[in-house]
Write a protein that binds this DNA or RNA. Structure first.
Lengths: 224, 224
DNA sequence: AACTTTGCCTAACACTGTTACAAAATGTAA
DNA sequence: TTACATTTTGTAACAGTGTTAGGCAAAGTT
């Protein structure tokens, strides 16, 4: 029954060419403006053929989402395997994460929804100046008198914002999943928040009151 | 010349009703499915009237983007003003940031492009398990033998991922701005990365080789 | 050769953002 | 009040989008 084999092979070829073309479109024109019709034109098939391979447009994007996480995961594993010590592994994985994101911008943006028009304008918002000022003020006031020379409050501000935004967006993405309304491993995301804040403060000021000394505010905060 | 005043007043009213309706649509149906035509229907004007107040659809979204940052900035300033010490100010601002994001999900998603369909599916990606495993492995191996009881590697993993993702996405958003291809305050984003990684490691393991001891890998990394 | 199944395309539906142009309402001047 | 000018508004179109129903033709089966 080589006929069915050939048919399957042809179907797979079409599927692959859909994904190839889609990726090419995403890379060249950005994932904003990629359409079923453009793919159909490029692969020289009619539009409904695409729907016989993928349920809808999102299913195609989801395919790249999946592959992106596979690639990222592999990149981290590779970085880790090259390092003997756990601490250097962490450092290597952090760098690998960064490198993956900027060497595969299209994947990363697809994975986390970056690149939307409103995003582009964020850096030109005037209120950002207040935002930065408010935070940097406290950072500057917190650094002990005899601090080492290479202390850069702007750098610390960026760290702080990054940590907060990462925390929020990762928790916001997984909202709406039915099984994950309860904390997946027995702790609330707010505990991660406290942990992150605590790490940040400890990184600037050596001695700081730990949140464990004030558990009411650390754990029993209103749950959204 | 009260006539011109009245005209201006009426124009402002229309503009306000456009924004009101747009926001209502965003809150009820999500910002994905909000359209010029729906606004026009709701305010009982024809479509081109909207284009006489806003250049295009993105300009309306940008308006909320701006307002969102103003609100966030104000919330942080409020949180800060209630605290005497710098460290507690940082903590309060961190919590205020979190609270703002989840009490104003629509604003936050609009500001940072969350809520796109592919985002929703992230938590169901199988490769995420490998991803988490790889990182948690190193975290577990790094924690010193006599660690305090409340050490949760899953929590640390979430902190780590959040920091990295926040760092990447904030740097990715401001890319393409012509004046910001050079570092805005004399340091590369990679330095922030090293700072964040270093803080994280120090938060787990007290003694860790600082990146300053190995500046070649910390600063002179290939620039994208 | 007749029948069935499969694969494929045309054409439509219901939307979207955006804009050219004509009509209506409003203002000003005679 | 009438005639003209200006502003304001709506209609209708253009060029897209995702998605799907229905029919035609080719391929496989009996």
């Amino acid at each position: 029954m080589g006929i069915l084999d050939r048919k399957q092979r042809q179907k797979d070829e079409v599927r692959a060419s859909i994904l190839d073309t889609a990726w090419q479109l995403i890379v060249t024109e950005g994932w904003q403006s990629f359409s079923i019709r453009k793919i159909a034109d490029a692969i020289e098939y009619s539009v409904p053929v695409i729907y016989s391979h993928f349920e809808n447009k999102d299913a195609i994007l989801l395919e790249f989402n999946r592959k992106g996480f596979q690639l990222l995961s592999a990149a981290l594993a590779r970085a880790k395997s090259g390092e003997p010590e756990p601490a250097s592994q962490i450092r290597a994985m952090g760098r690998a994460y960064w490198d993956f994101a900027f060497e595969n911008k299209e994947y990363y943006q697809l994975m986390f929804g970056l690149g939307i028009p409103t995003c582009e304008a964020v850096s030109r918002i005037p209120a950002l100046a207040n935002f930065a000022e408010t935070i940097i003020g406290s950072i500057n006031a917190m650094v002990p008198a005899g601090q080492q020379p290479p202390f850069d409050p702007w750098l610390k501000y960026q760290s702080f914002w990054s940590m907060l935004h990462g925390l929020v967006s990762i928790n916001m993405i997984r909202i709406g999943q039915p099984e994950q309304t309860e904390p997946p491993h027995g702790h609330l995301p707010q505990q991660v928040l406290e942990d992150v804040i605590c790490s940040f403060i400890r990184g600037i000021q050596a001695t700081v009151p730990t949140p464990a000394a004030d558990p009411s505010s650390a754990i029993n905060r209103p749950d959204n």
